[in-house]
Lab assay of single mutants.
Amino acid sequence: QEEEKEIKRLAKKFNASEEEARRAWKKAGGDPETAEKILKKKG
């Protein structure tokens, strides 16, 4: 599933848990760029 792959990639890229990545993904409405910004800010 595309979403799961994206979440795993985000978690790995930002050294975050999949739970954090999933939360960022949901907050971003499934937009990878926005999710990255959220995780970057958090990191």
Rank of each mutant, 00 (worst) to 15 (best):
L39Q: 01
A24H: 01
I7L: 04
A35K: 00
E36A: 13
G30N: 04
A21L: 03
A21Y: 01
R9K: 10
K41C: 11
K5S: 11
E33V: 13
L10D: 00
I38N: 03
G29F: 08
L39E: 00
G43M: 12
E2F: 12
E36R: 04
E6T: 08
A16T: 15
D31E: 05
D31A: 04
K12G: 07
N15D: 07
E33C: 10
K42N: 15
E6D: 05
F14R: 01
G29W: 05
W25F: 08
E18V: 12
K40G: 10
F14C: 14
G43K: 12
S17E: 03
G29P: 01
A11K: 05
A11L: 04
K8S: 11
A35S: 03
E18R: 05
K41I: 07
F14W: 15
A11W: 03
K26M: 12
L10F: 03
G43D: 10
L39D: 00
E20D: 07
I7W: 08
I38H: 04
S17F: 03
L10C: 02
N15I: 03
G43P: 15
I7P: 01
K37A: 06
Q1K: 14
A28W: 00
K26H: 12
E3Q: 11
L10I: 07
K12I: 13
E6S: 06
R23V: 11
G30R: 06
N15Y: 05
A28E: 00
R22S: 05
S17D: 06
E6R: 06
K5D: 12
Q1T: 11
E19G: 05
G43I: 10
A11I: 07
K26D: 12
A21D: 00
P32T: 13
E20C: 06
A11E: 04
A24C: 03
K40V: 11
A28K: 00
N15Q: 09
E36F: 04
E33A: 12
K37V: 04
Q1S: 13
K37Q: 08
A21I: 07
A16G: 02
A35W: 02
K26T: 12
E6N: 08
N15H: 13
A35Q: 01
I38M: 08
K42I: 15
E19M: 07
R9T: 05
P32E: 07
K27A: 15
G29A: 11
K12V: 10
L39V: 02
A35L: 03
G43A: 11
K37M: 08
A35P: 00
K27P: 01
E18L: 13
T34K: 15
I38T: 03
E33M: 11
K40P: 01
A11V: 06
K5R: 14
K26L: 13
E2W: 15
N15V: 03
K12P: 00
K41F: 14
K12S: 11
K41S: 10
K13C: 07
K37F: 07
R23L: 12
L39I: 05
K37D: 12
K27F: 08
L39P: 00
A21N: 00
K8P: 03
E36T: 05
A16S: 08
K42Q: 15
K27V: 11
S17K: 05
K27R: 09
K13G: 02
A11C: 07
A21K: 00
F14K: 00
A16C: 12
T34A: 13
L39Y: 00
K41Y: 14
K26I: 09
G30M: 05
K42H: 14
E18T: 07
L10N: 00
K27I: 14
A28T: 02
E33Y: 13
E19S: 10
K42M: 15
G29Q: 10
E2P: 08
A16Q: 08
K42T: 15
K13M: 12
I7M: 04
R22A: 07
A16H: 04
P32S: 14
A28L: 01
I7Q: 02
S17P: 08
K8G: 06
G29I: 04
R23K: 13
I38Q: 03
S17Q: 03
K5P: 08
K42Y: 15
E36V: 04
K40Q: 14
K42W: 15
K12A: 14
K42F: 15
K27W: 11
Q1E: 12
W25A: 02
E18N: 07
A16V: 14
A16Y: 05
K41T: 06
E19K: 08
K5V: 12
S17A: 03
G30Y: 04
K8V: 10
E2I: 12
R23S: 13
E6Y: 13
A24D: 01
A24L: 02
